[in-house]
């Protein structure tokens, strides 16, 4: 069975420790700190007169540079543009009124309802849940979290569109 786990490349500290361990074995020493210091001094002594060693160290130095992973932020739901599917020209909703999922369904249609609801915080979504429960008594969300509230509203409202 082949392993699908991809191993991470060793860090500079891990490679350094492994190299010292290997040198201890070759030379038969036991004090890794003293050997590490001796290796550094020896390499430095040879460095001025050995261009190939110089080049080898330069290559290793580049290899050991910390790898930077580009941060890729997923777009926030507020960055995704909502496109209304219906004009309600002249009909305005009071912006301080409780959340009305039926208004959002009418305005954005079933495909964008979830996205529109996701603009609200959980406390405000609970206002929307109340509006839905008023029309569908006996139903309730499966949890108190934002996602559970959205799922509840969408589950109740979307069949109305079918």
């Amino acid at each position: 069975m082949s392993s699908a786990v991809k191993s991470k490349p060793a860090t500079a500290a891990q490679r350094s420790a492994a190299a010292v361990e290997q040198a201890l074995g070759i030379l038969g020493f036991e004090d890794s700190k003293r050997l590490s210091a001796a290796l550094t001094i020896a390499a430095t002594d040879r460095l001025l007169n050995d261009p190939s060693l110089k080049e080898y160290i330069r290559t290793l130095y580049e290899e050991l540079a910390p790898k930077r992973v580009a941060a890729t932020k997923p777009p926030k739901s507020t960055d995704v543009e909502l496109k209304p599917v219906k004009s309600m020209e002249g009909r305005f909703r009071d912006p301080s009124a409780p959340v009305d999922p039926y208004f959002l369904l009418e305005l954005y249609g079933p495909d964008q309802l979830k996205l529109a609801l996701s603009r609200y915080t959980a406390p405000r979504l609970r206002e929307g849940v109340k509006a839905v429960q008023a029309r569908h008594p006996g139903t309730k969300p499966e949890g108190a979290g934002k996602q559970a509230l959205i799922d509840y509203i969408v589950t109740i409202l979307l069949p109305l569109q079918l």
């Binding site: 209304p84 309600m88 020209e89 301080s96 208004f103 305005l107 954005y108 915080t121």
Partner: peptide, 19 residues
Amino acid sequence: TLPAEQALAELTFMFNSQL
């Protein structure tokens, strides 16, 4: 801020409702 995001949501819904 969180309140700003909520106000922004209402502003968006209001303006979208008028196309």
